[in-house]
Design a protein around this nucleic acid. Structure first.
Lengths: 242, 242
DNA sequence: GACATTATTTGACGCAACGTCATAAGATGA
DNA sequence: TCATCTTATGACGTTGCGTCAAATAATGTC
């Protein structure tokens, strides 16, 4: 029994090692440079051993995605515990999401891949469920804040403004901003500010439109932005600045 | 001269044939099924000939993207000539964008690919410029409407609400909604409406928040939705329904 | 129409990467 | 110590990309 667990732990640790290595290669050399041979060489095992852990390259991408989403869950969780009103807590999610995209640019972009059908087919069902579960945790955190806000009367409640409307509004805006930011459209050359600069303003506008109190017109959102950054994401922002 | 143009026309037509074929394969069998051999067989030429037109598979994806974006430009252009006020015209863009994503689901999803750096490197510079140009046309149409609205006093003008803010707000929301819709997250099972159902509401909320007159609270946006669909996109919607 | 020259097409070839599997090496237990 | 079961290996088959020398076709000239 003990030896079994030791064995299992060894396997688990190697799995992590594989993902560590794969992620590193992905970041350094892009998706094209990420090959099974390359990973095998790097971890000093043979290709077959890698295949004992992951059934395909897509499976590895999926594994990397799961790790990243766990990071997102952690960032979101921190945001949801931000010491402030519900409006401030939901705003913190937007910042969390954009920091996430900046911390994991390559991964976020390639995560799109596993969303396409013919690639998803090459990933085992339970691994897919893992992603789904993580997505549920992420949306769950946001939904809880929205429900809190409704329960506490921060938002005027009526049918059209149901929680899913607010959630998807913020989510799609956030998601879209992140991906636009990562695409290399030269916003500066088009005389525009970048999506990441503007998502803070626009998400606040959207929340205002849902009449989520306190409105951004009644508070200093730049100060709030700073406060969230320093209180919640000091470490991550330092990492981004170097 | 005449023979030269004939030759050129032949080449151009074959290029179109290649893209037609590639797009068809992409839709029927996914990215994995799209191989250079496959295209060559289909058009009854050899692989080498295909390579005379496109330097790589990525180059073909890029070509397909350009065609799609031309479609988007056309849909946008129609929206911008919608017979109504500026607020209605900009709203029509949102509908256009979502119809576009539904008409070209596979292409839109794979277009993300050519946004990633290591793949973009495999596309010739002038082909990349083509995409950039199209992106400019698309954003240009939207920007013009926003500027019209500002000039005509539909939007209260102040620094923060500069055109790029509105543009990127709508763009990222639209873009994000489309991609979320195409990812196979089971929104229904999560008890939510879908991104495409909600983007209409949320984009209107955002525009309201910019105080873009007439506000959606003062008009029947469901009726407007219907009017835009029937007046501008009858044909496309019929195509989608079958 | 015959010939030279230029342009285009072809498919065999080299190469890289995926994923498999028979065999080798190692661990476990009696 | 030996038998058994588990894990690791890398050679192998396969596929698909992209190249290029040779074949074929088109064009122009006399």
């Amino acid at each position: 029994m003990n030896s079994l667990t030791r064995k299992q732990r060894e396997l688990f640790e190697r799995e992590q090692l594989i993902l560590d290595t794969a992620q590193q290669i992905l970041n350094q050399e892009g998706l094209a440079g990420l090959t099974m041979e390359r990973i095998a060489t790097e971890i000093q095992y043979s290709k077959g051993t890698v295949y004992n852990h992951f059934s395909s390259k897509e499976d590895i991408i999926n594994g990397i995605s799961c790790r990243c989403m766990n990071n997102l869950v952690e960032l979101f969780s921190r945001a949801s515990h931000f010491c402030g009103n519900n409006r401030e807590r939901i705003s913190a999610l937007v910042i969390a999401h954009s920091i996430y995209a900046q911390l994991h640019p390559v991964e976020v972009q390639n995560m799109q891949l596993i969303k396409s059908k013919d690639i998803r087919e090459r990933i085992s069902a339970d691994k897919q469920d893992e992603i789904l579960l993580l997505e549920q945790r992420v949306t769950g955190i946001a939904l809880n804040i929205i429900k809190d806000a409704m329960a506490e009367g921060d938002i005027s409640q009526n049918e059209q403004d149901a929680p899913d409307g607010i959630l998807l509004g913020l989510w799609s805006m956030s998601y879209g901003s992140n991906l636009l930011h990562l695409s290399d459209i030269p916003f500066d050359k088009l005389g525009m500010r970048t999506p990441l600069e503007l998502v803070w303003i626009n998400s606040n506008k959207l929340l205002d439109s849902y009449n989520w109190k306190p409105l951004s017109t009644k508070m200093d959102i730049q100060a709030l932005y700073q406060r969230i950054c320093t209180e919640l994401y000091q470490k991550e922002l330092q990492q981004l600045n170097k």
